[in-house]
Amino acid sequence: MTSCEGAAVSALTVSVSTAPSPDWDDFVRTREASIYLLSNWALLARDVFGHHALFVEARHADGRLAGVLPIVQQKSLLGNFMTSIPFFNYGGALADSREARFALMDRARQIARAARCSYLELRDTDPSSDGWSARTDKVTMILQLPATTDALSKALGSKLRSQIKRADRETIAVRTGGRELLDSFYAVFAQNMRDLGTPVYPKRFFAAILERFSEHATLVVIDHQGVPSAAAFLVIDGARAEIPWASCRAQSKSVGLNMKLYWEVLRHVIERGSTSFDFGRSTMDSGTFKFKKQWGAEPQQLYWHRWERDADPAKAGVAAKESRLMRYATSVWQKLPLGIANALGPLVSPSLPW
């Protein structure tokens, strides 16, 4: 059953529900907004992982939507926190005015406080000046795409082109598709996650995305000597393309399959008519940042606004201890046999603060 409650904010009414209103997705689609603000992404977290999804809406006096904010609560032995939205880089409040935006954010903060969450995180691309603190340690890397792959090849330069062509000396095959490639994608992804020391998502998570967003989701797989060895999951929304997940088996990087994978992905999205490509988030000057930078991508600052129940600076020592514990857990996970990591990962990953 859907639950609703409302509170008047100036000329606006802010309501909270366990299901989106019928005009939610139309509001998102008619604005320059992230695809992840569409209601089905928050519902995905609910239906696949059992998380609590809430839909915060602001309306004008005449009933028209003034703003939307999806939030997902992840509650387990590993913690209790809310995010807009988890598993992806973008979320936050989408509104037609500053007043509506802050009304949505304030209501979300009230919800998180009442639910006794340790924190609320709103994954915005624009800063707030309304007293919210923000994580700014991450950027997303955006490449403006030329009209043709020939133009892209010229822009990349000879060194990068030679690295891409290295893979062509191997016995490789490139496959692009949807659900039929999921097993191949997942085999590469799961091994890569274990190697990184990170619990893997369950395969049903990707299957649900491919089913619910079949017109937006695409898989690219490169086989090396008949074995899936590099793979990418793409989300394409009109002129914007993003690569939320990409993996390459460690033994295949020496023959350039990681470079070949990104080339094939960029070629595919250009042919689909995309004009910008999102390489995903990175920490400035990290290894992944430099890898993306060499393709011509430029950083775009992310502002992940946060409310924390206990923001006491004296707790910094606790945070440092937790960081050491995380590094230890990562090193242990990397040593697990692949079969055990693949069995345990889907049990742990849904509760992590992705």
Rank of each mutant, 00 (worst) to 15 (best):
Y119E: 04
L257D: 13
S349K: 13
R327P: 13
D26R: 15
F279E: 03
A239T: 15
H305N: 10
T83M: 15
T218S: 00
Q300D: 12
A58Y: 12
L77G: 11
I85M: 10
R109P: 06
R107F: 02
I340D: 00
D106V: 14
W354E: 13
D223F: 01
K165W: 10
R169D: 14
L347W: 03
V269R: 04
R212I: 00
L145F: 02
A319N: 12
M326H: 14
L257A: 12
T125L: 10
K253G: 13
D278Q: 08
A115F: 04
L122A: 04
K154G: 15
S97M: 02
S214R: 02
D183Y: 08
S282W: 10
A7R: 15
G67L: 11
F49P: 15
L352Q: 14
N258V: 03
F102Y: 11
D183Q: 00
P199M: 00
Q163G: 14
W307Y: 05
C248Q: 05
L94T: 07
G280P: 04
G226S: 03
K75S: 15
L43V: 00
Y36S: 05
G287R: 10
L219T: 02
Q73I: 10
S34A: 09
A173K: 05
A208R: 01
M105N: 09
A8H: 15
D126V: 11
I172T: 05
K335I: 01
R46H: 11
A66T: 07
L152S: 10
R324D: 05
I172Y: 01
W41S: 08
A112Q: 06
S274W: 02
M326N: 14
S282H: 01
G317Q: 06
I35S: 08
T171Y: 04
A33W: 05
A208G: 08
R212P: 03
L65F: 09
T2P: 14
